[in-house]
Structure formats: structure tokens, C-alpha cells
């Protein structure tokens, strides 16, 4: 049934991530055309829609949770998405941003904005528009229930393709060992 109304809706976003996972999704190359026959993107940097719809089938979240805005967006995604997917190592484990968990937040800010090499007019940013940083960077499943995880830094294009086509076809997506990579 290629009925346009029955397309699966997919929302994506990057929290404390580097957009590498999104690049890897685009890396499915010409299969994007086939994917777009099956899915319709909701909020995503791909179409620049800023707010997620109240009811979305699949939410793909890249990156861990490092500030108050990340928590807000993650909770919105959880409330809206039938299936929530942690995409990549940062979403699954905190990843590279979580390496700051070894230090206090104060130490991190001072290193970046006060003691850093070449810093002029040293001042820790405090504009009220800036989201407050969390004490520690957390993986998604510390904050909300996560239904699936796509491992990898980033997950390969084949991981995205297999996961999404399985899910859309109604199969429970289980990655074979050959597609499970953490680096």
C-alpha cells in the first residue's frame, strides 16, 4: 500500500551530539529516495521543522543530555513518539561529551572560558537565553524510557537502513553482530 496517508512519520534531533549520526543517515545515499516513499519527516534538521507534532511514529535522537533544553526536547520526543530510538554512542552512553563527567562543571567552564589559551575578557557566559548546563552529561535512558538503541559512532548507513526498513515492515529490528559497532 503506497498510500501517502499511511506513511510512517519520523522525527529526528541532535542533543549533545555532533550531527555525525545525521550525516550517517544521509549516507544511505540513493536509498533515501526509497525511504521517502515510506516515511514522512516530522521535526528534523533535514527539513528545519522546529517543533515536533503531538503524534509521531518514530523519534531518532542523536547525542546525550547535557543541558536543560536537551531534557525538555527529549521529554517532548518521548511524549510524542510511539517508538523512541537512541542513535549513536552519545545517546546510548553519553559518549565523548560525557568525558567531562570526570570534572566538576565549574572546572570545565573555567578551563573553557577563563583559563583557556588565548582567552580575552575572561567571563563564564551567563546570558539567560543560554540553557543551563547539567552537572553531568547523561545518556538518554537515564531520563526517559528508550525503546531501541542504534550503536556506533556513528551507526553506519546500513544500520539506519536495516533498522528503519525492519520497523516499517513491522518486524522487530534486531541488528546482526556484523552491524554492531561502538566506534
Amino acid at each position: 500500500m503506497a498510500d501517502a496517508k499511511k506513511k510512517v512519520t519520523v522525527a529526528t534531533c541532535s542533543l549533545a551530539g555532533c550531527f555525525g549520526c545525521h550525516m550517517s543517515l544521509l549516507d544511505i545515499d540513493e536509498r533515501l529516495i526509497a525511504l521517502l516513499e515510506l516515511v514522512e519527516f516530522d521535526r528534523s534538521p533535514i527539513n528545519d521543522i522546529k517543533e515536533i507534532s503531538p503524534s509521531v511514529d518514530v523519534g531518532l535522537i542523536e547525542g546525550g543530555v547535557c543541558n536543560a533544553e536537551n531534557v525538555h526536547v527529549l521529554r517532548q520526543f518521548r511524549a510524542s513518539c510511539r517508538v523512541l530510538v537512541a542513535v549513536g554512542e552519545c545517546a546510548a552512553t553519553g559518549g565523548v561529551p560525557a568525558m567531562r563527567n570526570h570534572y566538576t562543571l565549574k572546572e570545565c567552564l573555567q578551563e573553557a572560558y577563563v583559563r583557556g589559551i588565548g582567552v580575552a575578557g575572561a567571563e563564564i557566559p551567563s546570558d539567560p537565553e543560554l540553557p543551563l548546563l547539567l552537572d553531568k552529561v547523561q545518556p538518554l535512558h537515564h531520563v526517559v524510557k528508550v525503546d531501541y538503541t542504534l550503536p556506533g559512532c556513528p551507526p553506519s548507513a546500513d544500520v539506519f537502513w536495516m533498522f528503519l526498513t525492519d520497523l516499517i515492515a513491522g518486524r522487530d529490528p534486531v541488528l546482526p553482530p556484523s552491524l554492531i559497532r561502538y566506534d
Binding site: 546510548a92 545518556p139 535512558h141 553482530p177 561502538y182
Partner: peptide, 13 residues
Amino acid sequence: AYELGIPDNHYQQ
């Protein structure tokens, strides 16, 4: 972990 088919850590870090 690859061979046991582990996609995530499941527990709290």
C-alpha cells in the same frame, strides 16, 4: 559485546 549482540548498556552508567 559485539558477538553477544549487545546494542546498549541497559543499566545506569
